[in-house]
């Protein structure tokens, strides 16, 4: 399928008083037209900064995109002027954010907040844009859409606000929707509703989605490809079934082991990934995951492994082949020794 977005060697850093924070360290990936890609990783691994850099939404200063290219629709977004980029933002690339409680302006009606993008990008007049806003609200399942247009955000519940955010994101029929942990701040039942909603809307509208989450459980149902990030690096990328059945990076494996499973009952304990992510102020030339890795070998401490192809459409950055049975047995023995 045709490529919609191609990110090449994107590097974003924050210049703070304490030093340079290496938030995103040269990530490259592509998103095809109509494809759903999930980016997973724990808090602070550069997921959000990575996608916000695509449309230059990170606060500058202190943030700065120091290197890389972002090809979208035949142009490098990082080289566009601010004015040119504004025509892409909210129009061809829309973004929805994590916390619907704070992401809507409290003093403007939701109708106004939806229509302003329509007026700006599609040149609609007030009447047309209000009509379209009602359609959008109905599409995302807000009951009594017409009468709610003049309500303020505080008159909506969290789930409803996230629906409004989605309606806002979809208003100009974007080719790419970036969803930055849209379900994190919501109840589990509402989470499922929002995931279903976005999946259905995608079927209907055919846009591509980048879905950022730290919840691998959410990913399984909707994404076609998964990118795992750690400490600002992409450490594994694979089709979604491969990630679950054949993870090739110890960190991915660790994430999978820490998902609660209903089908295994109480017999199996969750295995958390021990330790903390590295300090992004100071990244030595080693595998960033080595200090927390049960499979780590000497080489991991000397050299950061590059992404290498390990299967069809599957890349991973690890010196060790953890799919090898012998390696797994050795690691388990190590773990047992330590426990004893």
């Amino acid at each position: 399928m045709a490529k919609l977005l191609e990110v090449k060697n994107l590097k974003t850093q924050f210049f703070t008083q304490d030093g340079v924070v290496h938030a995103v360290n040269g990530i490259s990936y592509t998103v095809d037209k109509g494809e759903t890609v999930a980016i997973v990783g724990e808090s602070g691994c550069g997921k959000s900064v990575g996608v916000m850099s695509l449309i230059r939404l990170i606060p500058q200063p202190p943030g700065k995109i120091v290197d890389g290219e972002v090809w979208f629709d035949g142009q490098d977004l990082l080289k566009l002027s601010e004015d040119e980029l504004r025509h892409v933002r909210g129009n061809k690339i829309a973004m929805i954010f994590q916390d619907p409680m704070t992401s809507l302006n409290p003093v403007l009606t939701i109708g106004r907040q939806i229509t302003e993008a329509l007026e700006l990008h599609l040149g609609m007049n007030r009447e047309q844009s209000r009509k379209r806003a009602v359609q959008l609200l109905e599409m995302v399942g807000i009951p009594g859409a017409e009468s709610r247009l003049d309500d303020y955000p505080h008159q909506f519940s969290g789930g409803m606000r996230q629906r409004v955010m989605i309606a806002m994101g979809l208003s100009c029929d974007p080719q790419l929707l970036i969803a930055d942990e849209p379900t994190t701040a919501l109840d589990v039942t509402i989470q499922a509703q929002i995931v279903d909603l976005v999946a259905n809307l995608k079927e209907e509208l055919g846009m591509a989605i980048i879905w950022i989450t730290h919840d691998l459980g959410v990913v399984a149902g909707m994404a076609e490809r998964v990118i795992v990030m750690y400490a600002g690096f992409i450490i594994e990328e694979a089709p979604v079934d491969q990630i679950y059945t054949n993870p090739r990076h110890p960190y991915t494996l660790g994430l999978l082991r820490s998902i609660p499973r209903l089908d295994l009952g109480r017999q199996k304990r969750l295995i958390p990934v021990d330790g903390l992510p590295p300090d992004l102020l100071d990244l030595p030339n080693q595998c960033p995951f080595a200090p927390r890795c049960t499979f780590a070998i000497d080489r991991c401490w000397q050299e950061n492994p590059p992404l290498e192809v390990v299967g069809p459409g599957h890349t991973a950055a690890c010196w060790v082949d953890i799919s090898d049975v012998k390696v797994q047995i050795l690691a388990e023995e190590d773990a047992n020794k330590e426990a004893a």
Binding site: I55, L57, D83, L85, R86, H87, V88, R89, G90, N91, A94, M95, F97, D99, T102, S103, L104, N105, P106, L108, E116, A117, L120, H121, M165, M168
Partner: peptide, 21 residues
């Protein structure tokens, strides 16, 4: 605030961003 980021993500020009939001 987050909602200013939302407004920027919509592609609003700086002047609208400041005055309206």
């Amino acid at each position: 605030e987050d909602y200013i980021r939302t407004a920027r993500a919509k592609g609003l020009p700086q002047s609208t961003l400041i005055v309206r939001h």
